[in-house]
């Protein structure tokens, strides 16, 4: 039994210690906003924040996270989709199918938390998530809109 701090709540997870955080979130905590795309840290669909860092949750197991660490998933980013990234995404119609967007939004939010006015090069470096629908240019524009740059 692992205890996690997810979106400000303590959640008991009844799963072996080698279970990837992604699947514990989706299947034990019932937070399906965090997506499975590759399972090998390639696509970023599973991105969550751990203590403010963007982390690919498919590639970290329960034993790699302690109860003291604060995990934030897309469901906990804001109570009402009011995070500047979410607002910019709505305004610019960033999502197409949307499947990658939880991860995109979490990666972008982590970037802005550290680098409030990112350059294009900083955006390129931070945003390595895969989007098969092809929303990259709107993702970039959305980050800039949210950052006011």
């Amino acid at each position: 039994m692992a205890r996690l701090n997810v979106n400000g709540r303590v959640v008991e997870i009844d799963a072996p210690a080698d279970t990837p955080l992604l699947w514990a979130l989706r299947e034990q905590a019932g937070l399906t906003g965090t997506k499975y795309g590759c399972g090998i840290a390639q696509c970023g669909a599973c991105t969550v924040h751990i203590d403010g860092e963007a982390v690919r949750s498919c590639s970290i197991t329960l034993e790699g996270v302690s109860e003291n660490q604060k995990i934030v998933t897309i469901e906990g980013l804001s109570p009402d989709s009011s995070h500047p990234i979410q607002k910019a995404w709505l305004q610019l119609e960033v999502p197409q199918c949307g499947y990658c967007q939880s991860g995109m939004i979490m990666a972008a939010a982590a970037l802005l938390a550290k680098t409030p006015k990112p350059t294009d090069a900083q955006i390129d470096e931070a945003m390595t998530n895969i989007c098969r629908c092809g929303t990259y240019n709107r993702v970039r524009a959305g980050i800039k809109l949210a950052a006011g740059v």
Partner: peptide, 27 residues
């Protein structure tokens, strides 16, 4: 006009096939 299906894609609420949960469901 704005798409009719954007809001739920911003907060994790959009349910895709992979996210379906039914009572008693197995995987």
């Amino acid at each position: 006009v704005k798409r009719l299906d954007t809001a739920d894609k911003l907060n994790g609420k959009q349910v895709y096939g992979a996210d379906i949960r039914l009572p008693g469901m197995l995987n």
